[in-house]
Design a protein around this nucleic acid. Structure first.
Length: 220
DNA sequence: TACCTAACTGCTGTTACTTCA
DNA sequence: TCTGAAGTAACAGCAGTTAGG
């Protein structure tokens, strides 16, 4: 047994015992207590003998295998609520003949798994989106080339930045925001392909107003 | 042997409470 | 006596890791 400081913000007295979680101070002392309800043969308890016999190096970690019924109930409960309040946790643990800590850990891991799944899906989606944008960009560039080729003797204008002559319609890269814009002399800069696609196909929380402000010459 | 997942560790944020100027 | 700031403890959740099956 040892007394360890466990928090960076506060000096907590933590009783550290082999086989017991040490991170959360006294509240976790009941974590591995055998529930009052009798142990099931379906799940492996970390029995007290194991804890006591291996004072050097800690007890070998026994791993619970949840039964199908336990998993089903936990999943069902997770569908209803991704987090549990202490009462719900207690009740569920009672129902499943598990320790509250085990239910808590299961929910934590389950949340992590669903988050990982969600992230993977988003990653896939972004990859596909990137692919389609690349394709669209290529198409638009080709289109610009064609339009440029059709133009004969474009009127000359003076660039406000460089004071150099510019063609009437051209792709330009803003040196500050590094965005490519198609400049149309009569109507000013038009939205780039990426912006248009973003507002129509992407379901992220990038709002049109944000995009417009990023696009506007004043903002850049 | 790779994979899945229960269990653990360390950390952060929140809330309630206490102390003190 | 009241009040707001600062400190602290308890707790919950998360990210990352470990290790059993």
């Amino acid at each position: 047994m040892a007394v360890l400081p466990s928090s960076s913000s506060a000096l907590e007295l933590t009783i550290s015992m082999p086989g017991f979680a040490s991170s959360s101070s006294v509240r976790d002392l009941d974590i591995n207590q055998v529930p009052s309800i009798g142990a099931e043969e379906d799940w492996i308890t970390m029995n007290i003998d194991d804890e006591e016999e291996s004072s050097n190096g800690g007890p070998p970690r026994k791993k619970l295998r949840l039964t199908k019924e336990q998993s089903r109930l936990l999943e069902e409960s997770f569908r209803q609520n991704h987090t549990l309040n202490p009462k719900q946790k207690e009740a569920l643990a009672m129902q499943l003949k598990l320790r509250p800590r085990q239910v808590e850990v299961w929910f934590q891991n389950r949340r992590a798994r669903s988050k990982l799944k969600q992230t993977e899906m988003e990653c896939e989606y972004l990859k596909r989106w990137f692919g389609s944008l690349t394709e669209q960009n290529r198409r638009l560039q080709r289109e610009v080339e064609e339009l440029r080729a059709m133009k004969v003797g474009p009127p000359t204008v003076i660039s406000p930045h460089s004071c150099e002559p510019l063609p009437a319609s051209t792709l330009t890269m803003c040196p500050r925001c590094e965005r490519v814009t198609t400049t149309n002399l009569e109507k000013g800069p038009i939205k780039t392909a990426i912006t248009t696609t973003t507002t129509t196909t992407m379901s992220t929380k990038v709002t049109t107003s944000t995009l417009q402000s990023r696009q506007s010459p004043a903002a850049c």
